[in-house]
């Protein structure tokens, strides 16, 4: 590690973003390992991991802007991830529904009844 003297508050800022990002990514992966069926598992990585990596990239932007020159190109990866995460999640959910994967038993399936009887009590 090449240590460069930074102003203290900027160092705290970068460290804060790094810790937040790493924690959220870890929580997303724990959710991926823990949840009971595929459709619930899909929720954890698409949200938490995207946000975690996003804040790690923001901390990288701050670090290199202070240490080196003005550097914003990590923004490209952040925007790209935020644009593509919903698309891959949508495709995977569609595939799972097509294959009719096993769902946990407490899943409320409101597909048929909402078409037939919209005022049915939950």
């Amino acid at each position: 590690m090449t240590m460069i003297e930074l102003p203290v508050w900027i160092e705290w800022c970068i460290a804060f973003m790094l810790i937040i990002g790493a924690t959220f990514a870890l929580i997303g992966s724990v959710g991926l390992a823990r949840f009971p069926d595929f459709l619930t598992r899909l929720h954890a990585p698409t949200k938490s991991t995207t946000m975690g990596v996003g804040s790690v990239l923001i901390s990288s932007i701050i670090y290199f802007s202070v240490v080196d020159t003005f550097s914003f190109h990590e923004l490209l990866i952040t925007i790209f991830l935020f644009l593509t995460a919903p698309i891959s999640a949508h495709l995977l959910a569609k595939a799972a529904l097509h294959l009719d994967l096993k769902r946990v038993e407490q899943t409320q399936d409101l597909r048929a009844q909402s078409a037939a009887d919209p005022d049915k009590p939950k």
Partner: peptide, 20 residues
Amino acid sequence: NIDIAAIILLPSRRIRPALI
């Protein structure tokens, strides 16, 4: 993200997924 983190980390909470 905060909501999902709470759902993942709190073991006792029963989740009720739904297709809407």
